[in-house]
Design a protein around this nucleic acid. Sequence first.
RNA 1: CGGGGCGUAGCGCAGCCUGGUAGCGCACCUGGUUCGGGACCAGGGAGUCGGAGGUUCAAAUCCUCUCGCCCCGACCA
Length: 584
Amino acid sequence: MRFTQALIRTSKEAPADASGTSHVLLTRAGMIRKVGAGIYDYLPLGLRVLRKIEGIVRAEMSAAGALEVLLPALLPAEYFQETGRYTGFGDTLLRLKDRKGAEYHLGPTHEEIITDLVRREVKSYRELPLNLYQVQTKFRDEARPRAGLLRCREFLMKDAYSFDVDEAGAKASYEKMRVAYNRIFTRLGLDYRMVSADSGAMGGSTSAEFQVLTQSGEDAIAVSDGSDYAANLEVAAAADPRASPPAREAPLARERVHTPGHGTIEDIARFLKTEPSRFLKSLVYLAVRAEASADPERHGGVETVMVVVRGDHEVNEIKLARALGAAEVFLANPQAVEDATGARVGFAGPVGFKGKIIVDRDAAVVARGVTGANETDHHLVNVEHGRDYDGEVADVRNVVDGDASPDGAGRLKIYRGIEAGHIFILGTHYSAKMGATYLGEDGLAHPIVMGCYGIGVSRLVATAVEQHHDEDGISWPMPIAPYHVHLVTLGMDEAILAAGRTLEAELVAKGVEVLWDDRDERPGVKFKDADLLGVPLRVTLGGKGLASGVVELKRRSDRSKAFDALPIATAADEIARRVREALG
RNA sequence: CGGGGCGUAGCGCAGCCUGGUAGCGCACCUGGUUCGGGACCAGGGAGUCGGAGGUUCAAAUCCUCUCGCCCCGACCA
């Protein structure tokens, strides 16, 4: 492809409303343009990247035995009404009416639609298992679209659904997808981790996220440096401190100290000349009991709980809710804290607290602890769990960088990640509600056991940029690059242009995708654009090189100025070889 | 949905406070000189000042309403 015919419009500056590295670079490179909040055009170069990603996803899904279908994006309301999600999805569902006033919505995901298809097409256990997938535009009226392609209202997603006769079959289908997903993300050239995650309210205990490691992801994930343990921070387990207990300091007598005006931990630590890790941070939570969650006011299923974590740790609300068997937990407001403790916020503590107490495992082993006295302007020092206060001990904190890995091997490092894929077993949640059954060998109808598997295809375009860029621009992994080779000819000298034409033709004949910058621009402009666009191999053909019979080959990811001088006669062979090598 | 900010040429911005009929840089077009890391000179085209209403002799500027966009938070099968 000739640059002059490719509709590539680069710019030095990005629009002021572009936020995030990938949004800025993709816009500056002329690959995407914003049409509205969370709505984008893909220009030719950007579309090529999107298509490359789709191609890899399709190839691996197909290799794993999944069949491609295409379900509608425009959906009559009745299907989501069957499972209660027409209202349950809330404002995220983009609803509309047709001329007759009938209700429709745009599909945010397609469990109901695929389940409907399968309940009509599949009758017998002989027709299972089945795995159907599609690559379709999804619509979600996000409360807050942001960061360009990373969180859109309209986005491209690959979603697959497996259908099996029983749990064991569903597990086998899930395993196939797990393997396929690992192959996909590896082929895309991304540094990613498969992590265990909160499966959410949707049910299904078996689930895994595929997180692409970036500097600015929305999610925090904990990864062990000594094993393959990796988990979303939401669910990452803290190592049990009793596995390697610290040298125990002899307990001292508990004392009450006057700490006027000091409410924060840093403050009191300085005042008492001690460390935040000595503190028993005591937070008052309201836990909504699971069975009462639909309407807590009416059922009154709310319990006040004091949560104790070490002063340098944070409460993990998902783990806390799980430990309490609660549907949701909320931090109590200041008035509720005062009511519960009898002291102003900042002076709460477990000693003498009348209600339920949950103690984080690391807080329970703190010796000579410091905590609030449940009396304004007073703290207690030399507090010991088991002697001065009690409470159920559980893992309710966020892990922090440097923690021991819960599997005992290595230490945890915290990364930022972008969720690019999620796989999980749904069970019979949808099939039971929608009557998707098969006739078994026993002649009876059974609900089909389902799994679902998503990949954010358009999000991956931005994710790849977040992971592969430098101050000059994008640096695409070869498998998803818009072109394999960026040919730069310097000057408009006919001898150089002729050599360019020849080299382009030779490369194309070998199956190499070439973008030839044939513009009448100065070298600096061409090099800057090449760096911005991020095609992985740059081939330069200039007067000096031509005179000595060589072309220059340089990898975009190589930050040095060094290049390989290739003899013109054999350059195409060598370049094609490097492309094949990089494609893996 | 709560808080904050911004809408002026394709893009980045100034002008607004203190009303007098719109300007700079980049990009674009023409000519010339340049030519291995975003050149220079000269000339040129391009703007319903987000929209509606109001105040005024006069509104980008002041007032009211409204729409859009961005950021932080809440939310995120």
